[in-house]
Structure formats: C-alpha cells, structure tokens
Amino acid sequence: MSSPEAPATEEAEAPVTDEVREEVLAELREDLGDAIVGTHIVPGQDLWVRVTKDAWQQAGFALRDGAGFKMFEFVSAIDWLPSPWGKSEDSPTDEVVETEPAEIVTGYAGGDTRFQVFARAHSQTRKMGVTLKVDVPEDDFSLPTWIPVFAGANWHERETREMFGIDFVGHPHLVNIYLPGEFEGHPLRKDFPLLARHVKPWPGIVDIEPMPGDESEEGEEG
C-alpha cells in the first residue's frame, strides 16, 4: 500500500508483501484516516508511517492503544539538508568549499520540510516496530509533546530540542540535557560546523585496509 509520496515502484520491484505490517497499517488508517500522508514498507523488515503535524499526538495514542505498540523506543529528529560543509569524502588536501545547498532528498515515507521528527514504538505481541515520522515546518517550529503517550519521551524530547531546536509544546521541563548552558547552536543541524575540522581536515580518508578474504586484489597492492 503506497501513498502518492512513496512511489509505487517500490512495490513493483519487491513483489513480496508483508501481511503483518499491512495489517498494522490498515489499523492505523482506520484510526487516523487522512492524517496519514505517507507510508513505506520494506517487506519483512520495517514499516514507516508519516502523519500530519496536527495528528502527531493522536497518532501516538493510536499506535499505543489501538495497535498495541506499548513499548517506547525513541523520539528524535532528522535534518535533511545536505551538509554545506561537504561529506566525509573530502580528501585531506581538498579545501572545504561552501557550496550552495543541494536539493533536499527525504527518505522513506516522503517529506516536505527540512526537518522531520521521527519516533519509534515496539509491540511485543506482534514482534515488530513502527517508525512514525512527522514534518516540522520551519515557520512553526514546534510539535505537541509525546509525554502523555509515553512517559519516557520526556528526555528524548529534551535531547531533540537541544540538538535541533524543535520546540515541544506542553513539555514541562524543556531545558538542555547535555550541553553546558552557554553553548550556542544546535549541533545536529547539518549546517552546524565542526570547527576542529575546519582548522584541520580529516586525516582518516585514506581508508583502504585490505579486506580479509579479498585475495584477488592483494596482488595489485604489491
């Protein structure tokens, strides 16, 4: 079952269907209806569901009470902006050039915004987990808290706030969890520079340790 965002090619390439996960998805659809805007299934492995921002908390309840995913795993976020500082492929002699931000490519279940929050819950009876995703637009950089759904979300939301700057509405104690108070910036945003790297480029790019069991290439190495 694919939504417009997750193209149907996925299904065509992988005719294996995953009935257990389809079933969960059907249950969630029943509870949430139009709030589900994107889905993705990798048969036998995992299920991704993207919901609208307004339905974030409701989706949590549907997952917990409706579908029986009672065990909380994590809440976190992802910044889809390609890193303006280049990737780790930069060789030590290359200058780090500031390029125009490339196009944002989002992952499974699609997405329209740079930031996405994703959370995961697990069901011990079904022996599987579900990853929920939600878009967080930058002009309204907040989400309702998940603490009523899973009490354990408390610290995870604090961490997400600190690392990405996303505000969780209704969180009772949204203060820094890791970094000292005077720290500026949100480290896990892609445009947060690792200053030590700018002073000295990564020396470890030369990473061609010969693989064991890879005899065919050993002759060339000399």
């Binding site: 890791y178 480290p187 947060f192 690792l194 030590a196």
Partner: peptide, 10 residues
Amino acid sequence: CGGPYWDSYS
C-alpha cells in the same frame, strides 16, 4: 589530546 573525538563539539 581528544583522541577519537578530536573534532567533536563538546
């Protein structure tokens, strides 16, 4: 010297 975290922010 910072070891494996030579480029860490914290």
